[in-house]
Simulated assay, not measured.
Amino acid sequence: MFAQLQHCGRISHPSHQEENALPVAPSAIKPTGSAFTARGYQDFETPRQLETSEIVDVVDQFRQAAQNALDAGLDGVEVHGANGYLIDQFLRDGTNNRTDAYGGTIENRMRFLQEVLDAVLDVFPAERVGLKLSPENSFNGMSDSNPQGHFESVVEAISDRGLGYLHVTEASMGFTGHIEGSARNVDYGKLRSLFPGTYIANNGYSKADAEFAILSGHADLVAFGTPFLANPDLVRRFRDNLPLNTVDKTTFYIGGETGYNDYPFADQNLVSAA
């Protein structure tokens, strides 16, 4: 079992912070959208830019999180550098306009990621550490002016670390149609070729898409998230070619158990139909 380590950065809300402090981020750029709070959804607020001197403390938080995972008996950790959270905010120029050693050039923007990996690798051996990236995902108001070139540089920079795997959110969340390859603006095959270890593809894959991706050599593994929420027995359904439950996206991120532990197993569907 691997734990995913992430810091929300600007994708938080003062009500989630001690003394209602502003969320922190690489730059004081307000994200679009809203956060789910105890009072329901509230608009994101403009975050406070991290001081250069504060970044070392945030890196140490990742180190401590990795140590906590090890102490809890987990097998490894995945560093979450994707989907608009803090590491991703440092990586992409739509959210990072810093002028210090953590902004500007591609090398500077990936500095925070490299330091987090250094910290986590002080705790776990490299083969028990994964990294998640999302080069063109627009979720949480994210953007980058050159995702292809930038993330080729990122993957090349981490390719000699011996990480257990690279997990990539391909295209933007909500994307479908992998076999046709539409609506994808990054050559993920190129990224896969730059990483010498296990490549895990993710985002909008059907069973057929996943089988095609693996057989064609595009990916070593395919990860499923949303289908698992709606199908607690997804592995069996895929194995036996059973129909999937319909996902109710209105229940996402609202708190509570609705939409997370109340989807029926295939056998329950059969009983209901009878």
Rank of each mutant, 00 (worst) to 15 (best):
Asp233Val: 02
Ala266Lys: 12
Phe224Asp: 12
Leu194Asp: 06
Gly84Asp: 02
Thr258Cys: 05
Gly174Cys: 01
Phe151Ser: 00
Asp262Gln: 14
Asp57Ser: 09
Val235Trp: 03
Pro14Met: 04
Lys207Trp: 15
Gln64Val: 11
Ala72Arg: 09
Leu221Cys: 14
Tyr188Ala: 01
Glu107Ser: 13
Val120Thr: 03
Thr52Gly: 03
Arg39Asp: 13
Lys132Cys: 12
Ala25Pro: 08
Gly204Gln: 12
Ala35Thr: 12
Met1Trp: 10
Tyr85Glu: 02
Phe195Thr: 03
Arg63Val: 00
Ile254Asn: 03
Thr198Trp: 09
Glu19Trp: 11
Ala210Glu: 07
Glu170Asp: 14
Thr105Ala: 06
Thr52Val: 07
Phe151Cys: 00
Phe212Ser: 12
Tyr85Thr: 00
Val247Asp: 13
Gln268Phe: 07
Leu113Pro: 06
Asp220Leu: 13
Ala28Phe: 10
Val186Pro: 07
Leu242Ala: 09
Leu131Arg: 05
Ile179Thr: 12
Leu133Tyr: 12
Glu18Trp: 07
Asn231Glu: 05
Leu234Phe: 00
Asp144Glu: 00
His80Leu: 01
Ile158Leu: 06
Ala171Arg: 13
Gln17Arg: 09
Gln114Arg: 15
Leu22Ala: 09
Tyr188Thr: 02
Ile214Val: 15
Leu50Lys: 05
Leu221Ile: 14
Asp209Cys: 06
Met142Gln: 14
Gly130His: 06
Asp118Phe: 05
Gly9Ser: 01
Ser138Asp: 12
Asn97Arg: 02
Val120Met: 08
Glu170Arg: 15
Gly130Ile: 10
Phe139Glu: 13
Ala201Asp: 05
Pro14Phe: 06
Asp57Trp: 09
Ile106Lys: 12
Gly81His: 02
Ile11Leu: 06
Pro23Val: 10
Phe124Tyr: 15
Asp57Gln: 10
Gln4Pro: 04
Asp220Val: 15
Gln42Pro: 03
Ser172Lys: 11
Gly103His: 07
Tyr260Lys: 03
Pro26His: 03
Asp240Ile: 03
Arg239Asp: 04
Ser172Arg: 15
Ile214Cys: 11
Val235Thr: 06
Asn140Gln: 14
Val247Arg: 13
Ala213Lys: 04
Phe124Val: 09
Asn96Gln: 15
Gly94Ile: 00
Cys8Ser: 10
Ala213Pro: 09
Ala219Ser: 15
Ile29Thr: 07
Asp118Leu: 02
